[in-house]
Design a binder for these strands. Structure first.
Lengths: 228, 228
DNA sequence: CAAGTTCAATCAAACGATTGAACAAGTCAA
DNA sequence: TTGACTTGTTCAATCGTTTGATTGAACTTG
């Protein structure tokens, strides 16, 4: 039941751990994909093993059981977020002008849209995450503490600076959630959105259209919000 | 394998069918709640029967099996939407001024927020719906055709009138989706939002705060778009 | 009594977990 | 260099449990 044993002390506690490899990594990737696609209970250990190109017993060996694999998948999601967004959100410089904060918000927004709607992790990670959020509150703790809370605080700081509001106020926090909700919906509701739009999935042109829409809302919300 | 046999011809094809009653209704309500809470595969027929206060065999008797109950739940969702929002979206009068369309959008928005975040159906229906959308595309057809498409078209007409844009344009369709995504997120991500806000669930005050936020975004998006 | 409905009991199939054998790679005495 | 031993990992086979479905008897109602 050994985890990855660190050969020596971690030189940097904020560093991003390396991606899992071998059978262990293959199982985590299979779990991320299948759990997100059909759900945890609907995915059998035999399917997981086959998708990972190994034997069912490997799940118990590496993770102690199916639940252990699920937890490892949650932690892999946290790790990927760290890897993409950087180990820790840099604290905002005190003299950052509102326009710069606005610009950075716009930049982060387009990055998020492209990540979520483009090919790659963006397809499976949100579905997996959402099922975790909808379900067991136990694993939600990991997701919240390691993925959501730090990023949300960072965005709130930017939003507060850009709109001239208190970054810790409920209004700003809600505004950031509403903004994120817009973006997430285009991934979670992809089946509905693309059908209604007459699109065949999200190509570059479609992603650009979504980007434009969300940036327009962002600009409207920021430039109109309570003037300082 | 008999469905509900209509004793005589339906007098009004647009009328809202009555809510299912008896054991059949209890099973549908149990399915809506349990499927939405823990997922379809994770819910056993025995749990369903116990939650409905009946025997497992009733599921096969009334719905032909577990899958039949699932389908009945989807149709019940469609029925509830019809019941709450009216049988069919009234076509927009040609002389409706932009301000009136804007006001009606605001009204529908607050109604939706209160329905989704308040106590009642709003808690279980979206979770169930989302899992259906994430999963089998077969049942998505029912959801899309009977719930989403007509409502979305109605909102697009209002949005187009309020913003002076073509209601059938991609820009308007995306704007409506983004707007809906904001609202939905506060239900789907409730566990995360309430935790970050320091709230203990959605009470009247919390719902009012969310309402204010979403209406602010709506007003900003509409008043900034091409003025009439 | 007859149709509609629910009951306890039972079935085969699929599930997650476990087991001991088998394999690969490294270690060390001779 | 060799051969035995250890450690880490994967394998096919099997365990007891739970699943969805089915069955015939028992109930309710008109």
């Amino acid at each position: 039941m050994s985890d990855a044993p660190p050969p020596d002390a971690d030189p940097d506690p904020g560093a991003v751990p390396p991606a899992p490899t071998g059978t262990r990594g293959a199982l985590i990737r299979a779990g991320l994909r299948l759990f997100g696609k059909t759900g945890f209970a609907a995915t059998s250990t035999r399917e997981l093993a086959e998708a990972a190109g190994t034997n069912v017993a490997s799940i118990a060996y590496h993770f102690g059981g199916k639940d252990g694999l699920r937890r490892a998948c949650v932690e892999e999601v946290a790790r990927r977020f760290q890897a993409v967004l950087g180990p820790d959100p840099a604290p905002l410089p005190d003299d950052l002008p509102a326009a710069a904060a606005h610009a950075r918000l716009a930049f982060l927004t387009t990055a998020m849209v492209r990540f979520l709607l483009g090919r790659g992790d963006g397809e499976e990670v949100p579905a997996f995450l959402l099922r975790e959020v909808l379900g067991e509150p136990v694993l939600l703790d990991i997701v919240y503490d390691r993925v959501i809370a730090p990023r949300h605080a960072d965005l709130c700081a930017l939003w507060g600076r850009a709109s001239g509001q208190d970054p810790d106020s409920p209004a700003v926090r809600l505004a950031v959630f509403a903004h994120l909700g817009q973006i997430l919906y285009f991934r979670l509701g992809a089946a509905i959105v693309t059908r209604r739009m007459g699109w065949d999935g999200y190509g570059p042109a479609e992603i650009a259209a979504v980007e434009a829409r969300i940036l327009a809302t962002l600009n409207a919300a920021l430039s109109r919000g309570d003037p300082p």
